[in-house]
């Protein structure tokens, strides 16, 4: 294992100092900043109304929210629980504020912990994960800003056929790509959401009903398959 000449595994961190000078202020500032972030999420919808008078019809908004919550709901609970051992306390606050957790924050924390020879869940691992995730946030925000500006510049100058490709076929490709990625990790479960969705769509159910059926139906089927057929050795890794 590469440790870059550092032996942080042997580093002794005073438990009192860790609790008083790190854990307590992290929880305090975490709650304050997450609270501010939560309030700030309402600024774009309110601004849209104040500047343009635009607001979606109430029933349409509710239907959209139901579909959105049906998709995201399981992740509200599962992701913090699943990622917490690697991210630690501050890594969790930061990751759920800045987003892009599984594709960016988590890998950064894991690789930094591995490179420095510390274990996830340890005090050393917590501190290393904090620095790794913070560095990734500075990096990603800078890159996203440059990417958004450059992307806008490039899209304006793109040929019409490419713009048409983006507008008409981007979404089907996104869904297919992500589905393919996760189907590989759980091939036994993959046919069921397609089957459940097909019959629910044929039955002309509202979007939020079909998504709920697809998500929770697949989880139930997954539980049955996992308990019935999968040993610890065969089960997929997160």
């Amino acid at each position: 294992m590469r440790t870059m000449g550092l032996n942080l595994r042997q580093l002794k961190i005073d438990p009192d100092a860790f609790a008083k000078e790190y854990v307590a202020p992290v929880h305090r500032m975490g709650r304050i900043t997450v609270g501010l972030h939560l309030v700030a999420m309402f600024i774009p919808p309110v601004a849209l109304y104040l500047i343009y008078g635009l607001v979606p019809p109430w029933d349409g908004f509710i239907k959209g929210m139901l579909a959105a919550v049906a998709f995201a709901g399981p992740f509200f609970i599962i992701e913090p629980i699943a990622y917490y051992p690697v991210l630690g306390i501050s890594g969790t606050y930061m990751s759920f504020t800045a987003g892009n957790i599984s594709n960016l924050r988590l890998p950064c924390a894991l690789v930094a912990q591995s490179a420095l020879g510390v274990e996830e869940g340890s005090k050393q691992g917590e501190l290393v994960a904090t620095i790794a995730v913070a560095a990734s946030i500075w990096l990603s925000i800078t890159a996203v800003f440059i990417g958004a500006v450059a992307g806008g510049f490039l899209i304006e100058r793109a040929p019409p056929w490419l713009i048409d490709a983006f507008r008409r076929f981007l979404l089907p490709a996104v869904f297919g790509a992500v589905f393919g990625q996760f189907a590989l990790r759980g091939i036994a479960f993959a046919p069921f959401p397609l089957i459940l969705s097909y019959f629910a769509i044929q039955a002309r159910q509202p979007v939020w009903v079909v998504i709920s059926l697809s998500v929770f139906g697949t989880i139930i089927v997954g539980r049955i398959i996992y308990k019935s057929f999968m040993t610890r050795k065969e089960a997929p890794q997160s």
Binding site: A70, F71, P74, F75, I78, E79, A82, L171, F175, G176, V178, F179, F182, A183, R185, G186, F189, A190, F192, P193, L194, L196, S197, V207, V210, I211, S214, V215, F216, G217, T218, I219, V221, G222, R223, Y226, M230, A235, P236, Q237, S238
Partner: peptide, 16 residues
């Protein structure tokens, strides 16, 4: 991990 995979397959499965 199974819950995460099933939830993602379920959500993306509908739109797929």
């Amino acid at each position: 991990a199974v819950i995460t995979i099933c939830a993602t397959l379920g959500a993306f499965g509908y739109w797929t």
